[in-house]
Design a protein around this nucleic acid. Structure first.
Lengths: 168, 168
DNA sequence: TTCAATTTTCAAAAAGTTTTGAAAATTCGA
DNA sequence: TCGAATTTTCAAAACTTTTTGAAAATTGAA
């Protein structure tokens, strides 16, 4: 496979997979493009390579910066801003876990905490099922929360080493 | 908080979180409703409680059955079909991991395998960055694949015990 | 076998999300 | 400070996904 064909495939697929992961297509495509670009790109470069409008490029680049997956770079002698993506995939994964934990898991646990204190007689079948389900999910979520915290703080070699030992 | 208010909150929030997880709002709401219902519900019950049309209910129930998160139940003496959700959240989580692995991770790894064989001179900066990024993602994905396989096969107490020891 | 109950399908409508592009705001070198 | 280059904003348009509802298909009791 030729490099150019492979690049297009990678960008298209990363974009498609992104949509399964709560990230929009263009945002994932910009991320993919930056991941495989040896040098920083400008907004114009991105617009041109992905065939998207200036507004679209701008919004999604900002969103990527917000997720801390992309950095602004100032090149000496250039007026424009340029952008790069972190290429160490372990760091990328940890950053995504960190953000999604903050945006999704933490608020969910907060809500479950409130819901588990529903009023009423625990003998009532309706109340019992509700409380049991909610506290079950809450406990599971708290375990996941702890495990992910470790993952986010861990460095790759420690983590892989431990996994190796665990899973033979 | 009263049971009814809590139920509505739970259903609404589960629906909203679902959209971050590649599951549509209604599908997640039906799942939530079944999770907190002590007894199996019919399509009519679900339509009424969630205020949705018959077609919508039917499609999303089938999708949940397809994900193996919901089961059809035949109640003696009833013509209608009824539905229940698995309430053990550990089983639910494993089932979701199993499905998403099959639908998302496995195809991604297959693609990355092809892309890592791009033709050309490794001395070329463009080719080197592309190949390094793709193989980096591929290795990471393969590790995740193994870890998730173990998780899917593990039973809860073994898994929690191991995590405990690991993470103090 | 018949036929009412029930489930499934699917085209069209509604709702939701993303993209565009031009105008407004900001930035920075001279 | 000025003004051209650049970035940001946001209403409207395009596109995508979800939902509806009525017709078609299926089911099962009598």
């Amino acid at each position: 496979m030729k490099l150019n064909e492979a690049k297009l495939q990678f960008i298209a697929s990363w974009g498609a997979f992104g949509t399964h992961w709560g990230i929009n297509r263009t945002m994932a495509q910009i991320h993919a493009l930056l991941l495989i670009s040896p040098d920083p790109l400008s907004a114009d470069d991105i617009m041109e390579q992905l065939n998207i409008s200036r507004g679209n490029a701008n919004m999604n680049i900002r969103e990527l910066i917000d997720w801390a997956l992309v950095d602004r770079v100032i090149l000496p002698g250039e007026r424009k801003e340029f952008f790069t993506a972190e290429k160490d995939i372990w760091k990328v994964a940890r950053q995504i876990v960190r953000e999604r934990k903050k945006r999704e898991l933490d608020p969910m646990l907060k809500l479950l905490g409130q819901l588990s204190q529903v009023e009423g007689d625990k003998k009532d079948k309706e109340i019992k099922t509700f409380t049991d389900t909610v506290t079950g999910i809450k406990k599971f979520g708290e375990q996941a929360d702890k495990a992910l915290d470790i993952l986010v703080k861990a460095d790759e070699s420690w983590f892989l080493g431990t996994m190796m030992k665990l899973f033979k």
